[in-house]
């Protein structure tokens, strides 16, 4: 048995090392590209290692663009979205999973249905609504919908609540908790992995979103990072290594946040409520 687990580890290591290599090579190559001069960038045969490392590419990009503003906007949108999604989705999902109320099933079918509606269908009418509310060219349309329980999160959290044995419910009821208290005290703590998943998911979607910012934002000082970078393409003909530098620079803030949050996600995932 000891041997078997050793063998398993060896296989695992090989698989993971190989796949990590595949994951990182493109990033490293791009990072090297971002540090080249244009001559080196377009040299044939390819010159892999820049000589010297042109760190000033990054300084130039920083000077020429409003990267800090873009990052701040992305941050605001993402954080507000994550908070909204966690609160609203779990609450709604709990009601669907554990409470009995009229029209529950038909409502839930609608949730599933809306999950399948291509968001683009609703862009124009939704734009008209936000326009009426005077919220166009603000960050609000980018996060407010997350506070109103998006179907993905509801679905995810409902699956999680369904997997929890019903006995917990009854125990809480005997303690005199109302459904809301049961939800907060009993159910939520047991679903940390799913909450973590939802956090990651919302974080990713919002941080990388391109379509909605393109439609709702027009002033450059409201741009989020992805469209900020996109708006630079074509800005530097014959200096494309700057574009690579700009793109990688836009990655830095989220990378830092991720490296910190990583710990939390792991903890959330490992301290599961199920025994």
């Amino acid at each position: 048995m000891f041997n078997r687990s050793k063998k398993r580890k060896a296989i695992s290591y090989t698989v993971i090392l190989f796949s990590s290599l595949l994951m990182l090579t493109p990033l490293v190559s791009a990072a090297l590209n971002s540090l080249k001069s244009y001559k080196e960038y377009t040299a044939i045969p390819v010159q892999w290692i820049p000589n010297p490392f042109q760190w000033q590419n990054y300084i130039e990009v920083w000077k020429m663009t409003s990267m800090d503003t873009y990052a701040w906007n992305s941050f605001i949108v993402t954080v507000l979205s994550v908070i909204g999604a966690l609160l609203s989705c779990s609450m709604v999902a709990y009601a669907f999973a554990r409470l009995e109320f009229p029209f529950k099933n038909s409502l839930f079918v609608m949730v599933l249905g809306t999950l399948m509606i291509p968001p683009v269908v609703m862009i124009i009418p939704q734009f008209m609504i936000f326009n009426q509310l005077g919220l166009v060219d603000t960050l609000v349309p980018l996060w407010i919908l997350e506070w109103l329980a998006q179907p993905f999160g509801v679905f995810l959290m409902r699956q999680a609540f369904l997997a929890i044995p019903k006995e917990y419910d009854e125990a809480a009821k005997l303690d005199g908790c109302n459904p809301f208290q049961t939800f907060v005290k009993v159910y939520l703590p047991m679903c940390k992995p799913q909450l973590a998943t939802l956090t990651i998911f919302t974080f990713m979607t919002k941080w990388n979103e391109i379509m909605a910012p393109v439609i709702y934002l027009s002033s450059e000082d409201k741009f989020t990072l992805p469209i900020g970078i996109l708006s630079m393409s074509g800005a530097w003909f014959g200096q494309e290594q700057y574009l690579v530098a700009a793109a990688l620079m836009s990655l830095l803030p989220i990378l830092i946040v991720f490296l910190f949050a990583e710990k939390y996600f792991v903890k959330g995932a490992s301290s599961s409520g199920l025994k």
């Binding site: 060219d137 393109v214 439609i215 934002l217 027009s218 002033s219 450059e220 469209i227 996109l230 708006s231 074509g234």
Partner: peptide
């Protein structure tokens, strides 16, 4: 109101 080219016209 200004925006980069393709964003501008889409909007």
């Amino acid at each position: 109101q200004n925006a980069p080219y393709s964003q501008f016209f889409q909007k």
